[in-house]
Design a protein around this nucleic acid. Structure first.
Lengths: 333, 333
DNA sequence: TTACGGTGATTAAACGATTTTTCACATTCC
DNA sequence: GGAATGTGAAAAATCGTTTAATCACCGTAA
């Protein structure tokens, strides 16, 4: 059995109120009693129990995290960042998987409320609006999401990818997305298209329509492939290698999200990484502010970081007149 | 504001006890009142609040999940399986990251207790013993872990990998681990070594000592590489391809854990997958049993599944006299 | 008539903490 | 000396729920 406030109080012959006051440093307690009590607290390793405190104060010290798909390879980084940020401010994280289903998502939110979560961080499933929550909530999605939203600047990320390749002399791109209904992917691709310089052009492929023949693309003059996820960049990369093409000799490949494997393959995958710690910190901070009934701020964009590895290089026919942009450095901002 | 028991009771002119009885179906309530109350409950969408119930019953309906590294690529599958299994039995999941640090792990466990978790599922960090918890706990690790443990049969998994390759005619293996202090990896490699047939032999490499030159290994006659993780199998695979060697033509490669990318590269990575749903279900069921003060069962091993993809094939000089074991099938048990 | 079950529902206590109110006592000031 | 002031700590209320104890009522049997 865990020690309770009552036991400490009885053992010292004081009231529970006094012990509670010592814990919080709030009421009036003599230095002598204070020392006595805190000594005892340390001795028995007492910690105030969650449920009792939650009941009285209306705060559980727990935040809900609702995701559309826990098994998504992007999730570990996000979850870890959020857990770390939350723990830093003394809060726990209750997770739920909405399985990309709006109904399940609504149910998950209800359970969070029921379990007494103080606030909610949600990565909404496609096409859902988060509203009417009796709790502070922050959304992590794309910038086009209404409501309090923290997310990477996916559009600018797309631009960064294209700019990096333009610097390397590439002019003919293939853009690779999975699903056009994903606003994150749409934002990224929109950014890429916006960044195309005069003379450069790009063809866009959606994997939901089928996988293009990468070797054929290369034969037709494409020298750079940009995928909205490292997963698909990896597919492209290995297909190209399998067809006897060199990366980055013949074709440069760049992905998004810096997944676990991206640094470990040969060549390393150049990618645009999300700054998860930053996003998580902002999300948690935002919730904390709302919990103190502070004014509700607005959407916040976090820049993505270009991580240059071996999978991108100068275009095959590109004259190396000047040094071709940052190359071997590990991370550039 | 969420509706409370009291409000429902007052609105109907009954006592809170009656409403609670209707909710639980326990006390004595007339059919008429019962119908009236449940109608109202549905109308306002009432759900009993967690903290109050937790305080009274001593049960929060939440399980703690403590992991040494949330960002590990194996985590998504595990977390999702556990979340699903827990939700199925009406429990939530509180996560914590011990950052592979025994001190942080102990602290995380304390926080779980403090927050009122009913039980704990823990993947312990290396070299730590989980004991003296005032809560039901179940460990997910290797079979050598004392205490209530549920885990994959890593040793048998190692055997399965070797047997698969022996069937394909391979005789000279390179075994690849990351750290010898990981009991999971040690178990897997021990299983591999135990399965070596007469005439076959294997060299073991630990990446913590440095990365071997895979092309050189191939030149010296190695035809099969078994890594204890898909991550390292992927490294080996791309290094080999980069050196102009064919997989599986010259060298077969096999990994562990069936990570997200393993099916998407070319060739697909043959791997030994953990049955996460099974492990999670057993862990959660075990905790549920302990919560009902049932007798404490013992360690439980879950078999691993060999997933055959393109990265393994017949040894270069292997005469295809009979059909070389299951090959194109997706999953064999 | 009185005692007795049975039924349906209310009352009250309990869980563990926090917080407001109250209280006892000592000191200081007119 | 009595009132005002100040100090330290206890008493009591409260949060939302469950549950044991109690109660009022009615019909029935002795």
């Amino acid at each position: 059995m865990q020690p309770r406030l009552k036991e400490i109080a009885k053992a010292l012959g004081v009231s529970t109120a006094t012990v509670s006051n010592v814990l919080s440093g709030k009421g009036r307690v003599s230095d002598e009693t204070r020392k006595l009590v805190s000594e005892k607290i340390r001795e028995v390793g007492y910690r105030p129990g969650g449920p009792g405190r939650a009941l009285r104060t209306g705060r559980s010290g727990v935040l809900g995290l609702v995701l559309p798909d826990i098994s998504n390879p992007l999730f570990p980084a996000l979850a870890q960042a959020i857990e770390t940020a939350a723990e830093r401010s003394g809060q726990g994280i209750l997770i739920a998987d909405s399985h990309a289903d709006p109904g399940a998502q609504a149910e998950a939110l209800q359970r969070m409320i029921q379990r007494g979560a103080d606030g909610i961080i949600i990565v909404p499933c496609r096409g859902t609006q988060v509203s009417d929550l009796p709790l502070p909530a922050v959304v992590i999605d794309s910038a086009s999401t209404p409501g309090n939203c923290v997310c990477s600047d996916h559009q600018r990320g797309g631009q960064q990818a294209v700019e990096h390749l333009l610097d390397l002399g590439h002019r003919k791109f293939a853009l690779l997305g999975q699903s056009r209904r994903s606003s994150v992917q749409s934002d990224r691709i929109a950014g890429m298209q916006a960044a195309l310089a005069a003379g450069a052009h790009a063809e866009t492929f959606w994997l939901e329509d089928g996988t293009p023949d990468f070797a054929e693309l290369a034969r037709r003059g494409t020298t750079a492939i940009i995928a909205t996820s490292d997963l698909h960049a990896l597919t492209a990369l290995t297909r190209l290698q399998d067809a006897g093409l060199s990366v980055p000799g013949d074709v440069s490949v760049i992905g998004f999200d810096d997944l676990s494997f991206s640094a470990r393959i040969t060549p390393g995958l150049t990618t645009l990484a999300q700054n998860m710690p930053e996003i998580a910190a902002k999300a948690v901070a935002h919730l904390s502010l709302q919990l103190e009934s502070a004014p509700l701020p607005m959407a916040r964009l976090v820049p993505m970081e270009l991580v240059v590895r071996g999978s991108t290089g100068p275009a095959p026919d590109f004259p190396p007149r000047k040094k071709p942009s940052p190359q071997q450095g590990d991370v550039t901002t």
